[in-house]
Amino acid sequence: MVDTTLPLHAHGTADADQAPPGGYQFYLTEEVHPQNGTLLGFWLYLMSDCLIFACLFAAYGVLGREYAGGPSGAELFELPLVALNTSFLLISSITYGFAMLQMQQNRVASTQIWLAITGVFGAAFLTVELYEFAHLIHEGAGPQRSAFLTSFFSLVGTHGLHVTFGIIWLIVLMTQVARHGLITANKRRLMCLSMFWHFLDVVWIGVFTFVYLMGSLP
């Protein structure tokens, strides 16, 4: 019988010096990971990210009409282009959902395909957003032009940075899945990225409504 009263070190081994003659030692071979611990921690991170975006939305709400004699949102925003960009991000959320369904059935190839499609739509979203920023700066409507544009670039740019990091994370996870398959750790990581990606969609819906649609009103 294993003597469970022996003291354990951090690596899960009993102290040989304190073991009685003829005593037993044992090793913890399984991964020591609290069930759902990572997901709980990631939820806490998303809540902190919500506070960041809440501050940026609040700043835009205060400064969104401070044009300093410069152009307003109604003069600058191209709603058809923004609507197309919104569709790219929303479709990427759907394709990621398909990837998660394939992951639950342990289909590595199908999961990788849907993840790649998600990355393509995410990259298309970033491309259009960068084009919009470049066009505004070319027209003299950079972030230094007015408080309105400062708050606009801060909010939309922060969201764009999150999408950029999400795509990098996606590429890293696709590499991990290609090397190790859909092991438990990779499934957990894909679940965390799923929450992050859908969170960005929800934030963008707020940006599209609060910044672009309301900003286009006279």
Rank of each mutant, 00 (worst) to 15 (best):
L40M: 09
I94N: 03
G23W: 03
F42G: 00
L84N: 09
V108S: 00
T118N: 01
Q35I: 14
I91V: 07
L51A: 12
Y60R: 12
G37P: 05
G119F: 00
P80A: 08
Q35T: 15
Y67L: 14
Y24A: 15
F53T: 03
Y60Q: 13
L56A: 08
V82Q: 05
Y45H: 15
G23K: 06
C55T: 07
N85H: 14
F26V: 14
Y24F: 15
G37D: 02
Y96C: 04
T95W: 05
P21I: 08
S92E: 01
Q102P: 02
A68E: 10
A74T: 05
S72L: 13
Q25R: 07
S48H: 12
R65Q: 14
A68N: 14
L84I: 11
T111V: 09
M100G: 01
T111L: 06
L76D: 08
Y24L: 15
L39Y: 07
L81S: 13
P20Q: 11
L46K: 04
G22H: 06
Q25H: 12
E78W: 10
V62Q: 13
Y45G: 13
Y96I: 03
I117M: 10
W43G: 13
M100F: 01
S87A: 15
L28C: 10
V82N: 03
F42D: 00
L81F: 13
L101M: 06
L39E: 12
A109N: 02
V108D: 00
I94Q: 05
Y45T: 14
D17E: 09
V120R: 07
S93A: 13
P21M: 08
S72M: 13
N106M: 09
A58R: 15
T118Y: 00
V120G: 05
Q25V: 10
G122L: 05
I117P: 03
Q112I: 07
G97Q: 03
Y60G: 13
F121L: 14
N36Q: 10
F98K: 02
Q102S: 13
I113R: 02
L39R: 11
F121R: 06
P21H: 06
T86V: 12
P71Y: 08
L39P: 06
D15E: 13
F53A: 04
L90Y: 03
W43L: 13
F42Y: 03
F53S: 03
F98I: 01
E75Y: 05
L101Y: 01
E30Y: 12
P34W: 04
F42N: 01
D17A: 15
V62R: 15
V120F: 04
S48M: 11
E75V: 06
E31A: 14
Q25W: 07
G37Y: 03
W114Q: 03
R65S: 15
S93K: 05
G119H: 00
A116C: 10
Q18H: 12
P71L: 15
P80C: 10
Q102V: 03
L56R: 06
G22T: 05
E75P: 09
L44E: 04
T118G: 04
S93F: 02
F53Y: 04
L81T: 12
P21D: 05
L81A: 15
E78A: 15
A116P: 07
